[in-house]
């Protein structure tokens, strides 16, 4: 990584004006319980904060993982330094979209495909062990999923980029 050529020192001021992310001491609390960190590639909010701090503008711009966040807000709740990681993710999404209005987040294709950004209801076994009913998720009901996809297709973003949703 070459900081001389790649880095935009004040990037953090663009992305997160309040500077909460400067408090981060890389403890990994945000990572270890994050549901989106199970994804491939995983969402690693600690690393996103680091990229903002270094000013790796191009790399950050290409990042799709911020869109995998499921907004559970656990990182926000547990961060010992009050970095507000969840808000940082929203800031990054905003920053990416403001800089490229045509950007279509890949998570929309995930939503289109299975109704959620993440593979939910994977804990069926655990639920069964605990005597809980399986979750009635949309991807288990093909008819509903089809209706849902037709509905999405009518939105302007998906309609304009329909080649992505085959």
């Amino acid at each position: 990584m070459d900081l001389q050529t790649e880095a935009v020192k004040d990037l953090w001021k663009d992305v997160d004006r309040l500077g909460d992310l400067l408090h981060c001491f890389n403890c990994s609390t945000c990572l270890s319980g994050c549901p989106a960190s199970y994804g491939d590639p995983p969402l690693l909010v600690r690393n996103l904060a680091r990229k903002v701090l270094y000013g790796l503008e191009e790399e950050l711009f290409e990042e799709d993982t911020p869109w995998a966040c499921v907004s559970c807000s656990k990182c926000e709740e547990m961060c010992p330094m009050d970095v507000k990681p969840f808000e940082l993710i929203l800031h990054i999404r905003q920053w990416q979209s403001t800089n490229d209005e045509t950007r279509v987040p890949p998570s929309i294709t995930e939503i289109y495909r299975r109704g959620y950004t993440q593979a939910v209801a994977t804990n069926d076994e655990l639920r069964a062990e605990l005597g809980l009913k399986p979750l009635p998720t949309i991807n288990k009901n093909e008819e509903q999923l089809k209706l849902f996809q037709e509905m999405l297709m009518k939105t302007p973003v998906v309609a304009a980029n329909d080649y992505m949703f085959g």
Partner: peptide, 12 residues
């Protein structure tokens, strides 16, 4: 292990 864990989960 250098990691501050977010939570402890009690298994059944």
């Amino acid at each position: 292990i250098r990691c501050r864990v977010q939570e402890v989960i009690r298994k059944p």
